[in-house]
Simulated assay, not measured.
Amino acid sequence: MLRSMITASNTMNQLQKQIDHISHNLANTDTTGYKAKNTSFSELVRQQIEQVNEKNNEVAESRKTPPGLRVGVGAVLTDQLTHKQGSIKETGRELDIALTSPYQYFQVDVDGEVQYTRDGAFYLAPAAGNADQLQLVTKEGHPVLDENGNAIRFNQRYKNFQIDGSGTVTVSSGNQNEAPLSFSLGIAQAVKPQALAEAGSNLFSVRDDLRDTALINLNGAGRQDVSIKQGFLESSNVDVSKEMSDLISSQRSYQMNSRAISMGDQMMGLINSVR
């Protein structure tokens, strides 16, 4: 009874984590560029219990199970980011940029640390320390970086934007006497996607010791692999019907394990009441 209660309680703890993941996915159904987390279960380590030998050989042979009795102690949850491409929706806004190839991410500066996002809804904001300049930022105000890791800044006279499919941003002032300026958006390709860790606000971070092996900066010849559409945004890749069916299944499993604990408690109460 104690073993069954421990198994059920361990599994309930993991089921609660699955429900939390599902809730997070559903809450971000309309979040631009959001990547859902899929969950799966595997069995915790099992214990091998051998039948006790009896002095009476006949009784021992009748009771002993040759391979022994293998008893588990519950289930453990594993989660994994799903990098499947989300649907592309047209907005017509010139600073909305959608990455149309999976595993590619924009690079942004978050308090001096390079982080990554699929959310291409960008804006213009005054550059810090220079009122005459504008810089390209995310909706949270984080500077968007170019291929050299620098913030994209230019004089506020430049207001006309054009972004090609390889991520080259061209800005012009409309004055024929001023040459247009060009910047290449910083794009990184994740070759080890599971090294990306959620950092909040639809951003991902990578540990410094994994950065060189988990990501490739698409510079130089690598720019031909960049795939971008201006005036579009990528929707989240959350499959609402799948999440709802997983939620129902996990709730039923949680209920079943809860009943197992209740039944074990009742049986222990009966045993303790025997005089």
Rank of each mutant, 00 (worst) to 15 (best):
M1E: 13
I6W: 13
N10T: 08
N13R: 12
Q14R: 01
L15Y: 09
Q16F: 04
I19L: 15
I19N: 06
T29W: 03
D30R: 15
T32N: 00
G33V: 09
K35E: 04
N38S: 08
T39G: 09
F41P: 01
L44H: 05
L44P: 04
E50Y: 12
E50S: 10
K55F: 12
N56E: 14
N57S: 08
V59E: 12
A60C: 11
S62P: 02
K64Q: 14
G72H: 00
A75K: 03
Q80G: 11
Q80P: 05
T82H: 05
H83L: 11
K84S: 14
Q85T: 10
K89M: 13
E90A: 13
E90L: 11
T91F: 04
G92K: 01
G92A: 01
L99A: 03
T100M: 07
T100A: 04
P102E: 11
Y103P: 03
Y105H: 10
F106R: 02
Q107T: 01
D109I: 08
G112V: 14
Y116L: 02
D119F: 09
D119L: 08
G120F: 01
A121I: 06
F122V: 02
F122N: 00
Y123P: 01
A125K: 15
P126K: 02
P126D: 02
A128E: 12
A131Q: 00
D132T: 13
D132C: 05
L134R: 08
Q135A: 03
V137G: 03
T138P: 00
K139M: 09
E140M: 10
G141F: 10
P143M: 06
N148S: 06
R153T: 11
R157L: 12
K159A: 07
F161C: 00
Q162L: 08
Q162G: 05
G165P: 05
T168E: 08
V169A: 00
V171H: 00
G174R: 09
Q176C: 04
N177V: 12
F183Q: 00
S184D: 07
I187T: 09
A190V: 11
V191L: 09
K192C: 02
P193T: 01
A195K: 15
A195Q: 15
S201K: 14
S205M: 12
V206W: 01
R207D: 10
D208P: 02
D209A: 11
R211D: 02
D212H: 03
N217L: 07
N217E: 01
R223F: 01
R223L: 13
Q224S: 14
Q224A: 13
D225C: 04
S227L: 06
F232D: 11
L233K: 01
S235R: 15
S236Y: 02
D239A: 05
K242S: 11
K242T: 09
M244V: 13
S245A: 14
S245T: 14
I248T: 08
S249Q: 11
S250Q: 12
Q251I: 15
S253V: 04
S253T: 12
Y254F: 15
S258P: 04
A260N: 04
G264M: 05
Q266A: 11
M267S: 07
M267I: 06
M268L: 15
I271V: 13
N272P: 00
S273M: 05
V274K: 06
R275S: 07
